[in-house]
C-alpha cells in the first residue's frame, strides 16, 4: 500500500480523535483541596529542610572535587545514607497521622530504594565517579519529595 494512502489514513484517524476525553475519576475535589492548601501555611519540618540543604550542598561541593570523592567515597555514601535515613524518619513521623493520598506510594518508595541500592553497588565498583554520587543524592531527594507529595496535597499528587 502506498505512502499516500498511509498519510490519508493517518490524517483521517487524527481528525476523528476525541479532543474532549473525560478523566475517569473526579479531579475537581483534589484541585479544590490544593487551592485551599495554598492559602494556609505549609507545615514543613524545619529539621528536614536543614538536612536536605546540607546534603545537597555537600554533594554539590564534592561534585567539584572529584579527587576527594575518589579518596572518601565509601564514607561519603555512608554519610549520605545515614543523613537520608534520619531525614526520612523525621518526615514519616511528621506525617504519621496524615492520610496518604495515593495507595502505591510505598511501592514507589521501594522502587527508589532498589535504585539507590543499585547505585551504591555501582559506587562500590567505581568509587571515582562523582556522577554516581549525585545520582544517589537525587534518588534520595525523590524519596523525600514522594513522601511530601503524598501527604501534602498542595502539589502534584492529590
Amino acid at each position: 500500500m502506498s505512502n499516500q494512502q498511509f498519510e490519508q489514513d493517518l490524517r483521517n484517524k487524527i481528525d476523528q480523535l476525541d479532543k474532549n476525553m473525560q478523566p475517569q475519576r473526579d479531579l475537581w475535589t483534589g484541585i479544590e483541596v490544593a487551592l485551599s492548601e495554598q492559602h494556609t501555611t505549609k507545615k514543613k519540618p524545619y529539621l528536614a529542610i536543614a538536612a536536605s540543604v546540607m546534603v545537597v550542598g555537600l554533594v554539590g561541593w564534592l561534585g567539584l572535587k572529584s579527587d576527594i570523592v575518589a579518596d572518601n567515597s565509601p564514607q561519603l555514601v555512608q554519610t549520605l545514607t545515614q543523613q537520608h535515613q534520619q531525614q526520612m524518619q523525621g518526615l514519616l513521623v511528621t506525617y504519621a497521622d496524615a492520610p496518604a493520598l495515593t495507595n502505591d506510594w510505598q511501592q514507589q518508595l521501594d522502587e527508589l530504594d532498589r535504585a539507590a541500592d543499585a547505585i551504591k553497588q555501582a559506587l562500590a565498583k567505581d568509587p571515582n565517579n562523582p556522577a554516581l554520587l549525585k545520582m544517589l543524592q537525587q534518588v534520595y531527594q525523590q524519596q523525600i519529595d514522594l513522601v511530601e507529595k503524598v501527604h501534602a496535597p498542595g502539589w502534584q499528587r492529590i
Binding site: 478523566p23 475517569q24 475519576r25 483534589g30 484541585i31 490544593a34 487551592l35 495554598q38 498542595g154 502534584q156
Partner: peptide, 18 residues
C-alpha cells in the same frame, strides 16, 4: 497513561490558578 494524565491535569489546574 490515564492515571498519570489525571494527575497531570490536576497539576495544570492547580498551576493555572496562579
Amino acid at each position: 497513561d490515564g492515571p498519570l494524565a489525571e494527575d497531570a491535569s490536576q497539576e495544570v489546574f492547580i498551576q493555572l490558578w496562579k
